[in-house]
């Protein structure tokens, strides 16, 4: 694997100013993605996983959003400091994004062909015929049969899985070096989800593209990710190589999530281990460890100091004052 960092985000902090107060959505997180690597970002709704990505792509509506601090170095350029023109160039061409609901990301009154060829005109400067040929090839690449004819179809004429394939084709149009996939399979059935996962894995290998796959499902990313980053309440709580994380979770939240998941491949032996309570209110400025109120290993320190992300094993980081294996303070 290449060790060159494609993107590195440092101390990113994003807040939203709402009538009810400030929403502390992302609270100083840092991570990186190597070229050609797949990073899975796992967390529940409201943990800041999508906001993080939208922040460094500068897609957060401001106001109400505000990127308070941080850097996002993409090939030595800080995405948060460059001009809007430069950003336009990177967004869509070098970094592409696909979303959970392909229907809302596609314009319902334009044909698929029109929507795929447009970035080919603007970013690559292809002429009409070239763009059309390229679009057909892209659709065939993502497994849409009879692509030439389907270019003239409208989004509603495609099924959910097919629409997601179209979105992927559009994202791939300019051969990006980073694809950000924001829960792209959450709205799809398992059999279709399996198709899409396999498609992305195949394309990634083929094009040596890095992928950031955002999900709430620890099952989905187990087979495809190189590294996994677990987020909670706007913080990164654990980060490790995929096998290390599943074998040896070191943050109580990751640990609890894994034991709360039923397994399709195992006979049931007992009740599920559930996590009490609910994710915290992001309107309250975080004080102490955000997971402490729901944690079974809480010690006094957890209420007062938020643990930083610390190395717990080679290339394995966790933010916890306690050693989950023994329950004793570190």
């Amino acid at each position: 694997m290449e060790t060159h960092k494609l993107i590195e985000v440092k101390d990113l902090e994003t807040q939203f100013h709402t009538p009810e107060g400030i929403v502390y959505a992302v609270n100083g997180i840092s991570f990186f993605v190597h070229e050609g690597e797949t990073l899975a970002v796992v967390g529940e709704s409201g943990c800041g996983k999508s906001v993080t990505m939208l922040s460094f792509l500068r897609l957060i509506p401001t106001p109400p959003g505000e990127i308070v601090s941080g850097q996002a170095l993409y090939r030595e350029k800080d995405l948060l400091r460059i001009s809007e023109d430069e950003m336009e160039h990177i967004r869509g061409k070098e970094i592409a994004m696909i979303f959970q609901d392909p229907m809302t990301s596609l314009n319902p009154v334009l044909t698929i062909g029109r929507q795929i060829t447009e970035p080919l005109h603007t970013h690559l400067g292809l002429n009409k015929a070239e763009a059309r040929d390229r679009a057909i090839k892209l659709l065939l690449d993502v497994g849409i049969p009879d692509a030439a004819r389907r270019l003239n179809d409208y989004p509603h004429q495609f099924s959910g899985g097919m629409r997601q394939r179209v979105m992927i084709a559009m994202a791939l149009a300019c051969a990006p070096s980073l694809l950000i996939a924001d829960e792209p399979t959450t709205a799809l059935d398992v059999t279709i989800q399996a198709q899409i996962i396999e498609l992305v894995a195949h394309i990634r290998q083929h094009m040596n593209m890095a992928v950031i796959w955002i999900t709430h499902d620890l099952g989905v990313v187990a087979g495809m990710a190189d590294r996994v980053m677990v987020m909670y309440a706007g913080f990164v709580v654990e980060e490790a190589h995929v096998e290390e994380l599943y074998d040896n979770p070191r943050h109580p939240y990751t640990h609890a999530l894994l034991s709360a998941l039923p397994r399709v491949d195992r006979r049931r032996d007992s009740r599920l281990k559930s996590i009490p309570g609910a994710p915290p209110n992001l309107l309250v400025k975080p004080h102490g460890c955000p997971f402490a109120p729901r944690c079974e290993h809480t010690i006094e320190r957890c209420g007062n100091e938020n643990p930083p992300l610390q190395k717990v094993a080679p290339e394995h980081f966790a933010a916890c004052w306690v050693d989950v294996r023994t329950g004793a303070p570190k």
Partner: peptide, 18 residues
């Protein structure tokens, strides 16, 4: 933020904070 947070032990989790 100088105000100390409420002690964790007293937080009844299914209670509404509001």
């Amino acid at each position: 933020m100088t105000q100390p947070p409420p002690p964790i032990a007293s937080l009844n989790l299914d209670e509404l904070a509001t």
